[in-house]
Design a protein around this nucleic acid. Sequence first.
DNA 1: GTGAGTGCAAATGCTTTGCATGATG
DNA 2: CATCATGCAAAGCATTTGCACTCAC
Lengths: 156, 156
Amino acid sequence: MRLKEKHEITEVAEALSHFEGFLRRRGFKVTRTRLLIAERALSMPGHFSAIELWGALRDRGTSVATVYRTLDLLAEAGLVRRCTLAGTSGAIYESCLGRRRPHGHLVCRNCGRAIEFKSQGLETELQRIAEAQSFCLEEAVIQGIGLCSRCRKALS
Amino acid sequence: MRLKEKHEITEVAEALSHFEGFLRRRGFKVTRTRLLIAERALSMPGHFSAIELWGALRDRGTSVATVYRTLDLLAEAGLVRRCTLAGTSGAIYESCLGRRRPHGHLVCRNCGRAIEFKSQGLETELQRIAEAQSFCLEEAVIQGIGLCSRCRKALS
DNA sequence: GTGAGTGCAAATGCTTTGCATGATG
DNA sequence: CATCATGCAAAGCATTTGCACTCAC
């Protein structure tokens, strides 16, 4: 546990300096607000919405607008991914730290949680299908909607 | 062509009476407006948004609210499917008539068109993954995002 | 100091809801 | 003729934008 935490802290720190480098390279300014938002975003457990991240920053007087703007930058820097879970309105984000790519999501329509799974095989097959149509595949979205084991029991 | 058209018209007519039966069975009223919206929705080519369908009904003084309400009913009756294409905001609908299930979508991020493909194999595999997590899979969303062959050429 | 970044509030786009009126069973 | 369905306008929600002010460079 102790080690895990330490490891995570290091990862976030590394990612933050990567982000700083990204900002400088692109001529963006390295501001306190951007680093703060980045740090909280990268420390969020699992998936989160822009609004949830904003909630975690309420105490610092940050505005939603800036949260959205910074999430865009983080996505461009490759530190965060924006995804749309089917059946929901609004985007959710996930930190790219310590996440195996590629992966898909099993989304529970009851509790809303998303379970990740490896999707290498599925993506390879999708790639094959795309090629057959000369479609240039850039990203794959593979999701299952239904009930997670917990809700399945709870509802029966 | 002649035959195809005739065939489609019959299909729509069949679907409409299915819808009427659905309404009666559920104690909903069979109104002129509902049948009109249903008829246009089932005749829409390819995918369409609620707003597009509304546009196709402008001349009849229908309100958006009713379009949305009726689309919900059509979805419940199994005549239309609501889906969210990744990378886009807002839902799109597709008539279930003459559509092979299951299928996935290749969504062009340039022109926005969605190309359908058979996804039987992919869904079976997803089902296997879900079972391994005791997740009860109800629906699969399999999408590829990228450039269709036309836009690929146009942009190069 | 100057231009980019920020917070705020207002605008947007899609979707839903409340309510008075009108049509259906 | 009692309800349920409809149109309208207003509300809701996530996201974006315009603008004056502030900060990093």
